[in-house]
Design a protein around this nucleic acid. Structure first.
Length: 558
RNA sequence: UGGGUUAUAGUGUAAAGGUAGCACACCAGAUUUUGAUUCUGUUCGUCUAGGUUCGAAUCCUAGUAACCCAACCA
């Protein structure tokens, strides 16, 4: 197993930098804006930034990009920190762009003094109008020619709160005819008489993203500032500020955000799903948020493995959801405790089994022997899965059917002799005989069955609510054809993304289930206890199904 | 009508002029007291057209397609 994983383009750059002695160690940062919950897209960025400094000497800062007081809140800061920790990463320093407000203010003054920034009186609409379009040059603002002294005075008065919101802005003086729209005298500061979650009412002017991000990187000596593709045009500005301010030269590198099939990832769309009640909150197990996935039962390791397998590049992509499921199952298969649960019950009576007799049969907790075994009560009356019986067996069917034999997992081989139907034709009871000498672990019957099914003893069964989750969207790319065609991503919502089973029969050992435990309900999938569970009422979420070759077989028949 | 970025199996990602590889998915088979897991195997790919070269995914030329850029958001 000496397979050498090839480097992605960022690792190539870093190894080159290290080799050339440009840096002895590297510094990266994860820069969320505290205005929402983290989702799978952030997870790839987290794994990337923190992963790089795990692989190479250096460290990663957590820096909240909190330059817009109107949308940001401490509540989000806390959830973001919790999510990063849950994913298994540790930041070196917890920092905030707002920590640098004073320094940023001084940088602005420096630019003004160099004649590279000016105070503008234009309204947002007027500025937009003069900005031009991608194909047409912009025009200079009438205030572009103000003297340095006047600009200094005006900017100080902006800071001192002499003007109302929107009355004035500070802009860089670059080039209104630039082909890069961002270089057409971008806004540096705007007036917002607003309360900031950290600086309170200290400031009434706030820096824009472009004037805060690069300089924050620089202040922290970030060597590799990694962001997504849409920031490519910003890099020119990023470099411009660093050059004019003559500060530490951080460098920005861009990669393509990861898109997952059958999900949406934009904050706006996720917010809409929550607000319109298509899901039950940000941590709904169907949401691609970190909190939702955690509640669903995803493991941090599976997410990290996924990010690692997907890799990193610069082209548009939609990654198969099945790759994420593969990583999930791979992890869960090794760690989840097995349990027997019947979701859609039908009663099975073993006619030749002694009344009132109860045996305690051992069953393995998992493929890893260290997980040990537990005892399952077995008796004359059992619940089995309705779908494990077919009155008229299909081709290649090797579960229960009239006259057919099947093994009850960890127990005996049984043979179906008879079944009872109600007036509507529904099977209500199955009668079988068992072979005492076929007992699991000491089978001398010489019988062999291809089919093995799970069961729960009626008398000892407990009940639980089980929530079966499926993908939230019916189509691979719910983002496509939105706005233009009049279509909407919400049109693609899968109406069957949640199926609630109010009364499932569970084996008694599940009474002690905890939220951190992961289970495999044998033959049904991986499950975990939901936070809604109480000692009186257990609630389980299906994390992901098991792969099912039988379902494929039935699909082949049409 | 401008500028920027990207094109490799169904999906994602490697190959730095020298055998187009890996993973997931798919399909087929073996094992199996979970139709799971595990194992084996098959099919399938360099955006197009030219050119350079003994040899091109890679270099050159010309096209084509997709995405991004006109928030006092980040």
């Amino acid at each position: 197993m000496s397979e050498e994983k090839s480097l992605n383009f960022l690792e190539d750059i870093i190894e080159q930098d290290l080799k050339e002695g440009k840096y002895q160690s590297i510094v990266t940062r994860f820069p969320p804006e505290p205005n929402g919950y983290l989702h799978m897209g952030h997870a790839t960025s987290i794994c990337l930034n923190f992963g790089l400094t795990k692989k190479y000497p250096g460290y990663t800062n957590l820096r909240f990009d909190d330059t817009n007081p109107l949308t940001e809140d401490t509540e989000y800061v806390e959830s973001i920190k919790a999510d990063i920790k849950w994913l298994g990463f540790e930041w070196k320093n917890e920092l905030y762009a707002s920590d640098y407000f004073e320094q940023l203010y001084q940088y602005a003054i420096t630019l003004i003094k160099k004649g590279l920034a000016y105070v503008d009186d234009l309204t947002a609409e007027e500025i937009a109008k003069l900005k031009g379009t991608p194909t047409e040059h912009g025009k200079d603002s009438p205030h572009r020619g103000r003297s340095i002294e006047e600009n200094l005075d005006l900017f100080a008065r902006m800071k001192n709160g002499e003007f109302i919101d929107g009355a004035k802005t500070l802009r860089a003086k670059i080039d209104m005819a630039h082909t890069n729209m961002l270089m057409r005298d971008p806004l540096l500061y705007r007036i917002k008489h607003a309360h900031h979650h950290r600086t309170g009412n200290d400031w009434c002017i706030y820096p824009m993203y472009d004037f805060a991000h690069g300089q924050s990187d620089s202040i922290e000596n970030i060597t590799h500032s990694i962001c997504t593709l849409e920031f490519i045009p910003h890099r020119e500005l990023y470099d411009w500020f660093i050059e004019k301010l003559e500060i530490y030269p951080s460098h920005q590198y861009e990669f393509a955000r990861r898109n997952l099939s059958y999900t949406v990832m934009s904050k706006r769309k996720l917010l809409q799903l929550v607000n319109d009640k298509h899901v039950n909150g940000w941590d709904d197990p169907r949401m691609p948020t970190i909190s939702g996935m955690r509640r669903r039962g995803f493991t941090p390791k599976s997410i990290r493995t996924f990010c690692d397998k997907v890799g990193i590049a610069k082209r548009e992509n939609i990654i198969d959801f099945s790759l994420l499921e593969f990583c999930l199952r791979e992890d869960l298969n090794n760690t989840a405790h097995r349990a027997m649960v019947v979701l859609d019950p039908i009663k099975l009576i073993i006619t030749n089994y002694e009344n009132n007799k109860v045996e305690e049969l051992p069953s393995e907790n998992g493929p890893d022997e260290n997980l040990g075994t537990r005892l399952l009560p077995f008796s004359k009356e059992l619940w089995i899965e309705r779908e494990d019986f077919m009155e008229i067996p299909a081709k290649k069917w090797f579960r229960l059917a009239p006259g057919a034999m099947v093994r009850l997992k960890s127990a005996y081989i049984i043979k179906c002799d008879n079944f009872i139907k109600d007036i509507d034709g529904n099977v209500t009871e199955i009668h079988c005989t068992y072979f005492p000498e076929s007992k699991s672990g000491s089978d001398t019957s010489g019988l062999a069955t291809k089919g093995v099914i799970h069961w729960v003893s009626v008398a000892q069964a407990l009940t639980a609510e089980v929530r079966l989750y499926d993908r939230l969207f019916k189509v691979e790319n719910p983002n496509s054809d939105s706005e233009d065609s009049g279509g909407d991503f919400k049109d693609y919502i899968n109406p069957a993304s949640l199926q609630t089973i109010t009364t499932a029969y569970i084996e008694p050992s599940l009474k002690n289930a905890t939220e951190t435990m992961r289970y495999q309900f044998i033959r049904k999938g991986y499950f975990c206890l939901d936070k809604d569970a109480t000692p009186e009422k257990l609630v389980f979420n299906r994390t992901v199904t098991l792969k099912d070759a039988w379902v494929k077989e039935t699909k082949k028949e049409g």
